[in-house]
Structures are given as C-alpha cells and as structure tokens.
Design a protein around this nucleic acid. Structure first.
Lengths: 106, 106
DNA sequence: AATCTATTTTCTAATTTAGCCAAATAACCA
DNA sequence: TGGTTATTTGGCTAAATTAGAAAATAGATT
C-alpha cells in the first residue's frame, strides 16, 4: 500500500474514531435535533465539563460538528448531516446481529 | 440517561470502534469487492497473520463481516452492504474538511 | 497416526484514550 | 478594573487498544 493510500485510510479511521464513543454518539444525536451549548450537553451527560469539552473537540477536529461562540457560551451544531444516514445503517447492523442471536436461541 | 439507552449507545459505539482502524477499513474495502481468505488479506496488508486474524475477529463480532471455512482456509466476506454507503459519507466529511483547509490558505 | 497448513488464541510490552482536577482563557458585567 | 461565568487546556492515572511472538487448534494429506 503506497503512502497516499495509507494516509487516506488513516484519515477515514480518524472520523470513525471520533464517532467510536457512546458519549460522542449521544452528542451527535442531540445535535441532530438542534444546536446546544457545552453547558447544556454537560448537564445532559453528567460528566465533568472538561470531559465533555474534550469530546466536542474530537468531533470538531474530525469535521463532524462546528462551533460558534455567542457571549460566554459556545454553541455546537452538526456540520455533516449524512452522519445521520450512517447511524441508521449502524442500526441495521445491530438489528441483523440481534436477529441472528434470536435465531440461535429459538 | 437510562440503562437501556446507555446500552444502545455502547452497542453502536462498538460498531464504530470496529471500523475505527485503517487496516480494518482496508479489509472492508477489499471485501466489498469480493471475499478473501485470511492468507490473501495478510499478504496484502503485510502484518503478522495473528494481527490480521484479530482485526477480522473484531469486524466479525461487530456483525460487519462473516466467515466461512473451506478446507484449511477461512474466507471472509462483507455481511452488511450499507457499510459502504457510510464510507461514502465519510469521504464527503473528508472532502468538506479539505475544502475548508484550502479556503484558509487562499 | 504423524505431519503439514491455515488460522486462532494467549501472553506481553508499547501506545493511545478517557476522565477528573486544577489552572488558564475569554467574554461579559458591576 | 475586578469579578463572574463558560469553556478550554495541561497534567495525571487508570483503562483500553495494538502488534507481534509463541503456543494451541482444526482440517487435510501422506
């Protein structure tokens, strides 16, 4: 595999890594409804603000969300809508697995 | 967040984790063309067989690929085609980021 | 049965990630 | 200016992930 190809796979992997955490998936779900400030998300998630802020920065640097400062607050919103489509594909993977599990039991 | 909801996010995250590695993305790409045995993939990837085998088992336990033993070889193939759609969404995330980078420079 | 081949599993060391606390920044307000 | 609130950053520790070497397993062949 040449360097360029390798770099492409690394870049793709970075995006998947950004989504590969339950808290970050929750954030994406919430932001798909409407923008939220860090404080609102922190409240919902129930972790330290610094932790939530770090999750957001990972999503941002992957290009999945964007932020906008208004007064003292920073609002985050979903930047790439198609992320939602692939969440629904993931659901289908989950359903397929669950069905299989079930068939093993029956 | 109740336990059930949390479990759902964990399960989704598991699927993203499975895809969050350059080698595993490469494997998915290859398998989207046609099934391959572990030895063929190992040859292409150039890592230890045990490493490749482990990557495959991660993809399998996430429900993304399936395997079939034929003689001494094990053939892996893509189980969930929609994974490919979301790879194309990821590409669009990458393009958007690249475009932005470019605009910063111009 | 003994051996060979392909693959998986186990073990260990190295690297990365997650989460909290404390400190630093930034924007607003008195 | 000094203080307050919201957020980010740095530092630290614990947990998770990665990779390869070696050992174990399963099926095919002699």
């Amino acid at each position: 595999m040449d360097n360029k190809t390798k770099a492409r796979y690394d870049a793709k992997a970075k995006i998947f890594k950004a989504l590969a955490h339950p808290t970050r998936l929750f954030i994406v779900d919430e932001l798909s409804r409407e923008e939220k400030c860090v404080c609102e998300l922190t409240e919902m998630i129930g972790a330290d603000v610094s932790t939530v802020s770090k999750h957001l920065s990972i999503l941002k640097s992957a290009g999945i969300v964007m932020d906008e400062k208004r007064g003292t607050q920073v609002y985050y919103s979903l930047k790439i809508q198609c992320v939602l489509n692939f969440l629904s594909c993931v659901e289908s993977v989950m359903k397929a697995s669950a069905k299989e599990q079930l068939e093993l039991v029956i």
